[in-house]
Amino acid sequence: METQQPALRTEALCKSFGSLKVTRDVTFELPRGARYALIGPNGAGKTTLINLITGEMRPDSGRILLDGREVTQAPTMARVRQGLTRTFQINTLFPDLTPIEAVLLAICERDRAAGQFWRSLTSHRVAIDESFEILTRLRLAEVATRPTRTLPYGQQRLLEMALALATKPKVLLLDEPAAGVPKDESAALFSVIAALPGDIAVLFIEHDMDIVFSFASRIIVLVSGGVLLEAEPAVVRGDPRVREVYLGKVGHV
């Protein structure tokens, strides 16, 4: 029964800032293991939609279901604990912590061990091994003990991802994971995303159409806050409306 539920489902989500409608009736489903892309021109409301789903903003109306359970009113923290995690378009890291500490922090929070003040950090051996394993997987092992603020930008983007993975998400929302990363490096970053465990449902925002078409199994096109089209890459590529509002302007494809 439960396995039939989509990992994430939104129903008629709406959000306005004053008279400006930034999210209009957004309904979509993210099945288990999905690799969906969310695209749309600047100002289409992509980040707002992610903020609504993760609970950083509250929708004016509509519902959000995680694994069939409603989380529309739940605080961000509770959603993360139920497996809904995001990364940020602009690095939102812990500048003075080292990557090993930051990932360990996320794991301790996930294991509900972060409130223990009588037990030394070094005694969390399994968590430390897991942190280092995640950092190794994201090719950050060599800089694991350097303060985050001293890391090159590309590695900070990877650390964004490492922090999200440490929460063991079932649904992962990636807000422009490769934003600001040179094209050759962004391909490496997306190969990491492609290698994520198959049961994680991924929704990513990305502007580079080459990447979108090679990594997404399905694409949601958002325009002026509403879903214009949700379809396979081939369909999106051939759709004249998409060309007009989005692809045509950018000059890609």
Partner: peptide
């Protein structure tokens, strides 16, 4: 030097990120 101490440093360094890691 506990996991709690690490969380405190996390709060100091970036309180906004804390809910996003649960």
């Amino acid at each position: 030097h506990s996991s709690f101490g690490l969380s405190l440093r996390g709060i100091r360094e970036n309180v906004r990120r804390m809910p996003a890691i649960g």
